[in-house]
């Protein structure tokens, strides 16, 4: 079992992604990375897909990473890390390395849901002992807010702008967390930085499990979401409370919703503070609010049913 979190001890640990990097003020990604690294009880080697996090944290001759870190290209962080992990296994078997090291990939939604999907799927299927963390801000933010398959229904982005003929993105998001669960890997989770203790517990749990693990973590982007600079954590909380971003884990096939909102808030509470959904509140687009809410309701109900169903199955084995 993973060691329980101890806030006093965590506060003394070194922050492994230093300040002074060039991520935007108020970005949700750096807190996610810091929490993930802080949760690890082992030394970590990380790979990073091209994207906001990558271009802003290692601009030569500076690096914000106090751990070994590798960036290869946009679509291959999983394949790259699978190479690092395989070399580790080879050298360990040969007695050239004795330390216990954990391997974590950090990638945005574009590098995960879209262009890096094949590389991720392959690495998970091969069973590498690694944790893949997607920080999901719901668009290609680094290149200037273009639509990805993680972009929510209705959103106004620069490649699907809310226009007079097409009112933003008309497709629903890809449910990547479930797709990763369908790979049959031992651990899959969805988390939010608003629920920091839940997030870090999941990381600790994941790192105790041998084999491929996947975590999808919401990371608000005030530039792309057109929200207030200091609202990243607030918005990630509302995302959980509206069930837009349910937080759950699937361990060895057993699904557990790790935090259920006492009262499920209407989706409009998540949409309203974000400029990217503004057009949906115009009278002619009210149908969009309805469609968006129906999708959230449907997915939430299904998630609860899945939880009840898998709970009847064999309990998760170590």
């Amino acid at each position: 079992m993973a060691t329980p979190l101890n806030l006093k001890e965590l506060s003394k640990k070194e922050v492994l992604l230093t300040g002074g990097h060039r991520m935007c003020s108020g970005c949700g990604a750096p807190p996610v990375v810091k929490m993930v690294l802080l949760a690890s009880e082992y030394p970590v080697v990380a790979s990073n897909a091209t994207g906001c996090l990558e271009v802003s944290t290692c601009i030569s001759d500076y690096t914000a990473w106090k751990i070994p870190w590798i960036h290869n290209a946009f679509e291959n962080a999983a394949a790259t890390l699978s190479g690092v992990e395989t070399m580790y296994r080879s050298l360990k078997k040969q007695g050239k390395i004795d330390k216990e090291i954990k391997f974590i990939a950090f990638c945005g939604d574009g590098g995960t849901y879209d262009i890096g999907f094949q590389s991720l799927s392959g690495a998970m299927e091969r069973g590498h002992d690694m944790l893949y963390v997607c920080y999901d801000n719901g668009a290609y933010m680094n290149t200037g807010i273009q639509r990805s398959s993680a972009t929510p229904f209705g959103a106004d982005t620069t490649t699907c702008p809310a226009g007079s003929a097409v009112p933003g993105k008309l497709q629903q998001r890809k449910d990547l967390t479930k797709i990763m669960a369908a790979h049959g890997i031992p651990y899959v989770a969805q988390a939010s930085p608003s629920h920091w203790s839940d997030l870090m517990k999941k990381v600790r749990r994941a790192l105790e499990i041998k084999g491929p693990k996947f975590m999808n973590i919401i990371a608000p982007c005030n530039r792309g979401w057109r929200s207030r600079t200091d609202d990243a954590i607030l918005l990630s909380r509302i995302a959980v409370e509206t069930c837009y971003w349910p937080i759950y884990e699937i361990e060895n096939g057993v699904l557990r919703v790790t935090s259920k909102p006492k009262e499920k808030k209407p989706l409009t509470e998540f949409l309203k503070p974000q400029g990217r959904f503004k057009h949906m509140f115009a009278p002619e687009n009210e149908w969009m609010l309805k469609v968006a809410q129906e999708e959230i309701d449907k997915n939430w109900e299904r998630l609860l049913k899945e939880e009840a169903f898998t709970a009847q199955q064999e309990p998760a084995k170590e």
């Binding site: 790259t80 070399m87 050298l91 799927s121």
Partner: peptide
């Protein structure tokens, strides 16, 4: 691997690993 793109990507990771 599942493609040559991943083959070379994994080689980069493995070689950098040492």
């Amino acid at each position: 691997v599942e493609s040559e793109h991943s083959a070379m990507s994994a080689c980069v990771g493995a070689s950098a690993a040492g």
